[in-house]
Design a protein around this nucleic acid. Structure first.
Length: 830
RNA sequence: GCGAGAGUGGCGGAAUUGGUAGACGCGCUGGUCUUAGGAACCAGUAUCUUCGAUGUGUGGGUUCGAGUCCCUCCUCUCGCACCA
């Protein structure tokens, strides 16, 4: 700021914003309680990880949420708008190691600072509901839910393969393995079989899928992503007997109609019957080497790459139960052990992967489904034919069409007892074990005699051990903390060992929205009366990056909590808004690109209201927002213009009630006021398009300034000017609450903006009585007519054909047709 | 490769059902005030060969009329990616 700037014509945002933030804090203005007489509205933004400071993505996300909250309050709803902290996670452990501090200390310091940042933005949260997931008073309930889920068969443990980093002595999540190496120390990760705990999300697969159709308020895109993730497919499960063995290979196929085209069998390298198949065959050693190779390759490769189809013949055969044909069994690198049965019937004529494999290893190709008007010649085919068609060479099913054949074949297999209809999901159970310190301990005790025993409910929470000064590192994994794991079995009292894994942090975020209804409840995770009133979340707002995991887990938890008797809803989030990213110079903000904008600096320079206004104005919420420093200036300029206008007109406005409405002078402004209320209400109500809402208010203000220029003689009355300003203020209140509160006070308006109702508009006042009708000749605009709104069509026609400009273009051509569109245009076709 | 979405001035973006393309803001140009302007205010700002013509990624179609509906192709973004 230079000395030359005249301070009096710029509003002092710093003083004003601090003043109102303090006022709101002292009066607990945003506190809400259950009130059965009022209709509730629950708006929630995805809570942040307390990484240290907020970024522009948060600013945008929370500005949007705050406008929704404030708008709904003005509309008379009892609005729940809480905020909390997703406070467990690996960064705290890393920071702790680096700075030789405790994760809890680091986390709570971050929370303090970020909370002060959110306060500075003027966000209207009910801070009395604040929660941090690392607080034992939060995760004790999570542990209780875990135990109850265990008792209801929704939790189990199994040994499974995980990514292990030897250097870090920990399991890594899939996202933390980059090109087969640890993201932190570049040590190649190794697969390791470990025991882990799982939530049975697959029990809800069908419901999670079908209820997606009830989520009318969700973006289609997110619904589709979840559908794909759940990945339901239906088909036939069928047993192929292994020759010279009592075992059989089970396969799953979605194309039972192609079963007569099976020419070989492919099994995964990890298939449980591998030993049975290859023990004692001639090439056993070679095959075993091959198996190790492809397992290693598959582990190493990222999920992106698609490798060449490779396989090896086991020397064994199995029998197609439909026609008794013997087909060779191959081990193939493209068969997934985890999906279906880990074995695939290979139909090269009708499956592209099998086709490629067959061509590589010169295996027979046998077409059995012929699409209409097609000939399939195994010798010349260049790709598999996947279209449905008429069956050929398929025994009793020959000449049936695909769809009918599928059912008939499933029925046949069921009848004969070697197969059945089967539904398969891509969705897997949710492994929640993490071998870390900074997470919620899994409340189990392992006893040699009694097995895995849940910690009795009255002994919860199982808290994390505090910093131990004797240890040089305070956040060692729990498995290295005897002070933590040494215990006795609750059943037999013998020495036993606590489970040392902590829960995936996604568990905490799967139910926090429900806890917000009764965050201080001491006797239960959730208060039935409170959740019954507040849930579900009416509007959830956050980044699309959580489209699958967080949102799917939350949906699962909601259903599980319902079945445990805690909730009565089926779905947690009625409406979902996935806001776009904040980008700069066309790229996502990142330190490496050096295009990061710091919210603190912006607030210092322009104030919170300007930052909020720009982030709402620059783009509709669902789109990416290009951050533009000059655009921020523009938003600041607008608020300052408004400020100066109000200050300059203060004297006239105070006596506003004495002036009288004069139709001829006030009509234009009065009309614009009501048009604006209508437009802004519509924009917010339909799709939260604040950008167009703000531009409508700007238009109203532009109209106001031009109608009240000093030089004009027909200026509107003080009464209407006051109405215009009051309207502008209340319409902007959800977006720039500090500024509006200050202006409200300066103008001496009644009460506070919070106590005001959202203005309703007078449809009649919003109507134009003079319309501009476009006159087209052959669809091209040639002239415009200003006519009273009630002009009859016939009169419009008459006026149009007499118009000088029109006549020029019509000339002596004959008029074929005249189209009149009410209130819009007249088109003369010649 | 499959699926979804999107392509509009120099820029961000407007345009409820097909009916004045470019609202609003930024930037830019000129002006006023001024010792000064990176302040404020005023005027202008799609393009061109400017009584007119052309313009919403390309090429077609439907229609009196298309940014909007249908088909072709191109580009970009996102998601999925051996799921049998």
């Amino acid at each position: 700021m230079t000395e030359r700037t005249n301070n009096s014509d710029r509003y002092d945002f710093k003083t004003i914003e601090e003043k109102w933030q303090k006022t709101w804090l002292v009066s607990s203005i945003d506190r809400v309680v259950q009130d059965d007489k009022k209709e509730k509205y629950y708006v929630l933004e995805m809570f942040p990880y307390p990484s240290g400071r907020i970024h522009m993505g948060h600013v945008r996300n929370y500005s949007i949420g705050d406008v929704v909250a404030r708008y709904k309050r003005l509309k008379g709803y009892n609005v729940l708008h809480p905020m909390g902290w997703d406070a467990f996670g690996l960064p705290a452990e890393n920071a702790a190691q680096k700075n030789n501090t405790h994760p809890a200390k680091w986390t709570y310091e971050n929370i303090d600072y970020m909370k002060s940042q959110l306060r500075q933005l003027g966000l209207s949260y009910d801070w009395q509901r604040e929660l941090a997931t690392c607080d034992p008073d939060y995760y004790r309930w999570e542990q209780r839910i875990f135990v109850e889920m265990l008792q209801n068969d929704l939790v189990y443990q199994k040994v499974t393969t995980v990514n292990w980093c030897e250097t870090c002595q920990t399991v890594l999540a899939n996202e933390q393995v980059i090109d087969g190496e640890c993201w932190r120390c570049d040590q190649p990760v190794e697969p390791r079989n470990m025991n882990g705990w799982f939530f049975k999300i697959t029990d809800y697969a069908e419901e999670l899928l079908s209820d997606l159709d009830t989520l009318k308020g969700w973006p289609e895109k997110v619904v589709t992503m979840q559908k794909n993730w759940i990945g339901k497919s239906t088909g036939l499960e069928c047993k192929f007997a292994i020759k010279d063995s009592t075992e059989s290979l089970s396969i799953f196929t979605t194309r039972p109609d192609t079963i007569f085209g099976v020419t070989f069998m492919s099994v995964a390298a990890e298939h449980p019957l591998i030993d049975e198949l290859i023990s004692g065959v001639d090439d056993e050693a070679t095959i075993r080497t091959f198996i190790s190779e492809i397992i290693a390759e598959n582990k190493k490769l990222g999920p992106e790459e698609e490798t060449e189809k490779k396989g090896i013949f086991t020397g064994r055969y199995c029998v197609n139960p439909f026609n008794g044909t013997q087909v060779p069994i191959y081990i193939a690198n493209f068969v997934l052990a985890e999906y279906g049965t880990g074995a695939v019937m290979a139909v090269p004529a009708h499956d592209q992967r099998d086709f490629e494999f067959a061509r590589t290893y010169d295996l027979p190709i046998k077409p059995v489904v012929i699409p209409p008007d097609t000939e399939l010649d195994p010798a010349t085919m260049e790709e598999a034919s996947i279209a449905p068609g008429e069956l050929t060479d398929s025994g009793q099913f020959t000449s049936l069409y695909s769809i009918d054949a599928q059912q008939a074949i499933i029925d046949h297999a069921t009848e004969k007892g070697f197969g059945n209809a089967k539904t398969t999901f891509r969705l897997r159970d949710w492994g929640i074990s993490r071998q870390r310190y900074w997470g919620a301990p899994i409340p189990m005790i392992h006893c040699d005699k009694c097995g895995a025993v849940p910690v009795p409910l009255d002994q919860l929470p199982v808290t994390l051990p505090d910093g131990n000064t004797e240890l040089d590192n305070e956040c060692l994994p729990l498995s290295k903390r005897p002070d933590f794991y040494e215990t006795t079995c609750p059943q037999c009292n013998e020495p036993a060992r606590r489970e040392t894994d902590t829960m995936d942090t996604f568990v905490e975020s799967s139910w926090y929205f429900a806890r917000f209804a009764s965050p201080q409840e001491l006797n239960s995770p959730l208060d039935k009366s409170e959740t019954g009133y507040w849930l579900s979340v009416d509007q959830y707002i956050g980044g699309v990056e959580h489209a699958i995991l967080h949102l799917l887990y939350s949906r699962f938890f909601t259903k599980a909590l319902r079945d445990l008797g805690y909730l009565t809803i089926d779905e947690p989030f009625e409406n979902l808004l996935t806001q776009g990213m904040v980008i700069k110079d066309g790229a996502k903000m990142s330190k490496s690109k050096g295009n990061v904008v710091d919210p603190d600096e912006l607030i210092q320079k322009y104030g919170a209201d300007t930052v909020r206004l720009f982030s709402l104005f620059a783009a509709p919420p669902e789109r990416d927002l290009e951050w533009n420093a000059q655009g921020v200036e523009g938003s600041s300029r607008f608020i300052n213009r408004l400020y100066r206008y109000i200050n300059n007109h203060l004297e006239n406005l105070t006596g506003a009630s004495e002036s009288t409405y004069d139709e001829s002078q006030d009509r234009a402004l009065h009309r614009k006021i009501h048009q604006t209320i209508k437009k802004v209400s519509y924009d917010i109500e339909t799709n939260f398009h604040f950008n167009t809402a703000i531009s409508a208010v700007m238009e109203l203000f532009n109209t106001l300034t031009s109608l009240t220029e000093e030089s004009r003689r027909d200026r509107p009355s003080a009464q209407t000017i006051e109405e215009a300003i009051r309207t502008i203020l209340i319409l902007l209140f959800p977006m720039i609450p500090h500024f509006v509160s200050e202006m409200w006070e300066i103008m001496g308006l009644a009460g506070t903006p919070q106590q005001t109702n959202w203005p309703s508009f007078d449809e009649k006042a919003a109507e134009e009585e003079l319309l501009t009708i476009v006159v087209q000749v052959n669809g091209k605009v040639r002239s415009r007519l200003d006519v009273p709104a009630n002009t009859e069509d016939s009169e419009l026609e008459a006026l149009a054909i007499k118009d000088a400009q029109v006549l020029k273009f019509v000339g002596d051509k004959t008029i074929k047709k005249i189209i009149v569109v009410k209130k819009k245009l007249v088109n003369i076709v010649v």
